[in-house]
Design a protein around this nucleic acid. Structure first.
Lengths: 331, 331
DNA sequence: TTGTAGGCGTTATCAT
DNA sequence: ATGATAACGCCTACAA
């Protein structure tokens, strides 16, 4: 049988209420009883029952983290940032993924909130449909949206447009007149932002945007990149540079296929990826790419939500972080 | 104000106890009241307060997953396996990492158990010291140890010795007389097992084990592999094959340095890694390596613990899984 | 088949 | 400074 407040109270000759106050460092307790109670608690190695406490305080002391899919290294890295923050967090992190589940993100959130499982939520997803977002607002549970900008919710996101603009500008300044762009054909916001950054860089440099230089892939694996390379060769053999917001793996596929066909990277084809995965340093030539501050995103998210939960902050906050352009050998 | 059992009871003209029985599908309820109660519950969109329920039932309905470090792709992949099991799990997963924390794994476990935060634990770690293991046994909370064999606890692990033996045998059968071995110099069990597998393969093939062919690295990054290559060249230039239980990244470092020094892989030096990371397919030549069934490990772990929690299993169970040798270009 | 009553381990509001 | 007492929302005998 676990030790309870009552056990301590009896040994100490006080009531459970008093013990509770001692355990929770409340004021107005005589030094004598405080000492005595703490001593006994230690002797019995007392641990508070967090569930009972939760019922009394109406707090679960848990933060939910909802992710679409743990297979994404992007998501995992943010999760790592959440867990490795410097701040001492006395909230437990509960992990939920939605891929292959019956519930949508918003349904899941609603249930977790109403079941009182969690005090707050961090939602890592670039893909939540606009019309679901209000659900997150309506429940009385704070929510931080990560990886997607959003007016009505607190959010942490990176300036993908700027990231893409940097990358494209770099290629143009290297003298490339015809810069292809490879995007992932899913309706997620970052893709749009990155495409816009690409367009902006072209415009700033007086280059006309050409729709036919934008290639679409429906997945982000090496194979997709290899196919894209062939497409580029077939449709626009004069292309000397390609920016790949679809991600490093696609960029790596392009490099692989280029090498196989004796097209020299970067001399005949410059390639810039997006994400800075570990593989970016493995491919030869190493991949020039755009890095997102994922750990930092997680760190901000957890700190924002804890601030909210402790009542230190209110109102909607947005944190925009910035990408970093990583120059390696491929461009 | 959230809807409670009592609210439903009043509307339905019954007592909270009856509603509770309906919600929990208990027998001996008339079809009439069952229908009426469920209807009202739905209308009010009732969600049970899991904390109150937990206090009454003395169950948290949560499973803790303790990992040393979320930066490890090995660990993350197992976690993914845990989350993506086919079984419908109505346990919440709480995630804890121990790197940079004050508490050791066993202290953390003990606290979680005594605070009644969790009903069971999955511990993913090859590194728990033998003398801490009994702590996991002593608390009255089921624990599954993943990635380390263990007599006194349920465990899920892979046969690393066999994996290493397969890899080494393969190299020997390819005609290599002098197979080097690169291990990670940390006191974790898999390293020992893999080294033993390496030795066993040598012996089976009538090759004498030579201590000087075993190289040690203190970390598992690409750079370490590059240094190891130089060591091999300096100490045993006749080496034609190297098996790298330390991991794919180290193996990749060896390949990179070999290429830089115009040593042809696999012709002049065959390389076999361990882990089958995404980067294994990126390096050129692609890396022959040993794959561990990580998703499967997670799947087994979660199923084992749920079985225990539901009382379907008892006694100590061990599940040994097997590696798969993946032949690519580097050997 | 349903109601009554008590308890799960804490916290919180009063008195004293 | 401390003790009674009543929640918190649910579950579970046991009684009816």
């Amino acid at each position: 049988m676990p030790v309870t407040l009552k056990d301590i109270a009896e040994k100490a000759g006080v009531t459970a209420a008093t013990v509770s106050m001692v355990i929770n460092n409340k004021p107005n307790i005589s030094e004598a009883t405080r000492k005595k109670v703490l001593k006994i608690a230690r002797e019995l190695s007392y641990y508070p029952n967090v569930i009972a406490r939760g019922l009394a305080t109406r707090k679960s002391n848990a933060i939910g983290v909802i992710v679409p899919n743990l297979a994404s290294s992007f998501v995992v890295r943010i999760l790592q940032g959440i867990k490795s923050t410097n701040r001492d967090i006395d909230y437990t992190v509960q992990l939920f993924d939605t891929i292959g589940q019956k519930e949508s993100e918003s349904q899941l959130f609603q249930r977790l909130a109403r079941e009182r499982r969690i005090d707050g939520i961090i939602l890592i997803s670039a893909l939540v449909p606009e019309e679901e977002l209000h659900v997150f607002k309506d429940e009385n549970v704070p929510c931080i949206l990560v990886a997607r900008e959003c007016d009505i919710l607190d959010s942490v996101f990176v300036n993908n447009m700027q990231g893409a603009r940097d990358a494209t500008s770099y290629l143009i300044q290297k003298g490339h007149k015809s810069v292809a762009c490879v995007i992932c054909d899913k309706p997620n916001v970052p893709t749009q932002d990155r495409l816009n950054g690409y367009k902006a860089a072209l415009q700033e440099n007086g280059i006309e945007y050409n729709d036919s230089l934008v290639y679409k892939t429906d997945d982000v694996a090496v194979d997709n990149g290899m196919q894209i390379f062939d497409q580029i060769r077939a449709q626009a053999p004069e292309t000397t540079a390609v920016f790949v917001p679809a991600g490093d793996m696609v960029a790596i596929g392009i490099i692989k296929e280029a090498k196989k066909q004796n097209v020299i990277v970067p001399d005949s084809l410059a390639v810039v990826g997006y994400d800075d995965l570990p593989a970016a340093e493995v491919i030869e030539p190493t991949l020039t790419t755009v890095r997102q501050p994922k750990l930092e995103m997680g760190d901000y998210a957890i700190n924002m939500i804890v601030d909210k939960l402790e009542g230190r902050e209110s109102g909607i906050k947005h944190k925009e972080l910035h990408t970093k352009f990583i120059v390696r050998e491929s461009a």
